[in-house]
Design a binder for these strands. Structure first.
Lengths: 255, 255
DNA sequence: ATGAAAGTCGAACGAACGTTCGATTAAGGT
DNA sequence: ACCTTAATCGAACGTTCGTTCGACTTTCAT
């Protein structure tokens, strides 16, 4: 029950990688299980030994990617105190992951709404924590630099817009690497929110309850009842207790 | 052949509006022609009297929106000379259109790749002209302000990222209107590219031939041979010569 | 060697899809 | 009144989809 589980996980991971590539180039809904079967070399029916449904493949890809993104950001931010350098690091890690995993990047950003109900909520819970981690960095910057009028929500979402939109245009043959991209985008963003171009600039009083920053506590997802699919004859309920499929619980946000 | 054509066009426009709403909430590929039929009150078969295919509906929605966007930007920019004010205006019009037409906005940005071949190319031709219009504004700003190291391509695409990403988060009940959004985003962008935060900042030598700005000439699409669907028994080849379906040719870019 | 478990697959099922067909009704010019 | 054309629709066709089933092969601890 040790080697077998490891083998299962290795192959599942490979399937997820290939599925991400297929989802990227065809889009989740247009891609068929037959496409994925062909890309992986596994038969159509064989796919269902590793995942109970097509939805679940997307779910695993998204959760896996988001958790990696979140974990790397947390680990790195733990070692830095300067607010500016923290934000720069967050941006760098985000861009680095995106440019190194273009398939997962697109699946994460373009197929946001392709999941439903439980699975969607679970991914959104991780995303929200990740968002708030960034939010806290910008908020800290706002305090440190006395940026009284800054609408943090809008600033953060604009930053994510710059970064996430990349999947629509980035061309590794033409565009700079992630380090240079980080310089560019942190440059725009930091200059952008601290400067005071024209009237009003980056301000707006309505910082309201827009985004419910419920304190820096970690927004971990609570225990789920099954996977909402009634545990099929195959061995996996959420993925058979493998590392990939365990929800994974980590240290609270450090900021 | 006058009143009848006008009636046809009115109903087609209504169908396009409803279809855009359906595409927005369900996504293009998940939305069925039956969904659109139900939303418009027209029968499933009746839909095919107004559009030869589902693809063509998406095509018309996208082309219509892009042409309106492009026309309004051109008209407004004609009256302004200050580079900063020109860029500000471009951003304001873009955001205004997006916030006033959220259905078309999402269909434009999220369903970029849902079209194929001819139809896709035709929409992309308009989009490219629109992109270059913005590119020229930023390039003019670069000259006017001596922003030697600025990678215009990356700056422009970052700006579009900020603006286009809005469809994933904008909530009219919580977020400011288009005027305030314009202030915020032009603030970030103008401060962003003119400032000099940290080392390197918004610079990179590789401004190369990345995007082929083929002079300010308009990139109009040339005459197409039919609509690639062999003119079905119904009256429409590309939409029956109505205002909506005519490619539309306009004045060259003013900058 | 043997038997249970893990892994794999061809073939099929039922549902949903975009599109078409033939027919019917409504409008509008003469 | 008549006839052409516009406008509309129910019913179906052929295809593709996600998923399932039952049987087959491989793996490996005993």
């Amino acid at each position: 029950m040790n080697r077998k589980s490891a083998k299962f996980d290795r192959k599942l991971e490979e399937i997820l990688r290939e599925a991400a590539a297929v989802f990227r180039s065809l889009g989740y809904h247009q891609a068929s299980m037959r496409d994925i079967a062909h890309a992986t070399g596994v038969s159509l029916a064989g796919l269902y030994y590793y995942s109970p449904s097509k939805k679940h493949l997307l779910y695993l890809i998204q959760r896996h990617a988001f958790e990696e993104l979140l974990a790397s950001a947390r680990a790195a931010l733990d070692l830095i105190v300067d607010p500016v350098e923290r934000l720069r690091t967050f941006v760098r890690l985000h861009l680095q992951f995106f440019l190194e995993h273009p398939n997962e990047m697109k699946v994460l950003t373009h197929e946001e709404e392709s999941l439903e109900d439980d699975l969607r909520r679970e991914v959104n819970a991780i995303k929200k924590v990740y968002y708030q981690l960034c939010y806290h960095q910008v908020e800290a910057l706002k305090q440190a630099r006395n940026l009284a009028g800054l609408n943090t929500r809008l600033a953060v979402l604009s930053l994510f817009g710059m970064m996430n939109w990349i999947y629509t245009w980035y061309n590794p043959k033409v565009d700079p690497d992630s380090v240079a991209m980080t310089q560019l985008m942190t440059g725009i963003f930091l200059n952008g929110i601290t400067g005071a171009w024209g009237r009003g600039a980056v301000e707006r009083a309505t910082a309201g309850p827009a985004v419910r920053v419920s304190g820096p506590g970690n927004g971990e997802q609570r225990s789920r009842r099954g996977n909402g699919a009634g545990t099929p004859a195959n061995g996996h309920s959420v993925g058979r207790g493998s590392p990939l499929s365990r929800p994974g619980r980590r240290a609270p946000i450090t900021s």
